[in-house]
Amino acid sequence: MNKYSDLTDQELIRLYISGNNPAFTTLVHRHKRRLFTTIVLLVRDRALAEDIFQEVFIKIVNALHSGRYTDNSRFLAWAVRIAHNSCISHFRKANGWSKTVVEYHDEIGDSMEMMEHSAEHHMITAEINHKIGDMLDRLPKLQREALILRYYADLSYKEMAQIVGISINTALGRVRYALMNLRKQVGTETLV
């Protein structure tokens, strides 16, 4: 068990700034899955997401060391904002979208999960994830982005509005319409 695992994000950040690198490692491991999945869903390309993920953590390290992080008790929301802005920068340069990848698993997690579940379970899960990805691909870009930030990045509507630069009501509306569109799609298709 990691001796830092019971510490809050803010405590880990303070330790890291004071020179304790294992504290930052704990912070990265705590949030890597959610942050990486958010990036993958935004850029819709796993290899590109890996590059952006590394870029995001370089920006986080630089911001922490330069004192640009304010202790607002929402490290993940701040990190997602950096990730979102990095994705937007990429799109401004590349101006394109590829296929959505719904989930990310690291190699250790995949190995453990393989031992716990049957092959049939994995096939069903993969098929469901593929269909969900297809449904997300059919949503308008702004609605898809709203769902990703709300449910994959687990941001509040206020945080989502701040990151994207919209009002809270617009954020609520985008998520609402995205869910309505997904329900329509589910009504015309079966997941399994």
Rank of each mutant, 00 (worst) to 15 (best):
L42V: 04
F24T: 02
S66A: 11
H31C: 06
I60R: 02
I39G: 00
T37S: 12
H84A: 03
H31D: 09
S18N: 14
L76Y: 05
F57C: 05
G96E: 14
T38E: 04
W97A: 07
T70Q: 14
S98T: 14
R46V: 15
A94T: 13
A79E: 01
R30I: 04
V61R: 15
L64Y: 08
K32I: 05
G67Y: 08
A77L: 03
H90W: 13
T37C: 11
T70G: 14
I39P: 00
I60A: 06
K59T: 04
W78H: 04
A23W: 01
D51C: 13
A47C: 10
A94N: 13
K93Q: 09
I60Y: 01
R81M: 02
S18E: 15
R68P: 05
I52Y: 05
A47M: 13
E50K: 15
F57Y: 15
V43P: 03
T26Q: 05
A83K: 00
I82A: 02
L27D: 00
V80Y: 00
L64W: 11
G96T: 12
I52Q: 03
H31G: 07
S66R: 15
P22S: 11
E50A: 14
L35E: 00
G67T: 12
I88A: 10
Y69E: 03
T70N: 14
R92F: 10
I39H: 01
N62P: 07
I60V: 15
W78Y: 10
A79Y: 00
F36R: 07
F91Q: 07
T38A: 08
F75N: 00
V56R: 01
L41S: 06
K93R: 13
I82G: 04
N62F: 09
A77H: 00
V61Y: 14
R46H: 13
L35Y: 00
F53K: 06
G96D: 09
H31Q: 04
N20F: 06
T26D: 01
T38P: 06
V28P: 04
T26M: 02
D71R: 04
R33N: 13
L42F: 07
S86M: 08
E50G: 15
Y69C: 05
I88R: 13
G19H: 09
A63L: 08
F53I: 11
D71T: 07
R30H: 04
I82Y: 00
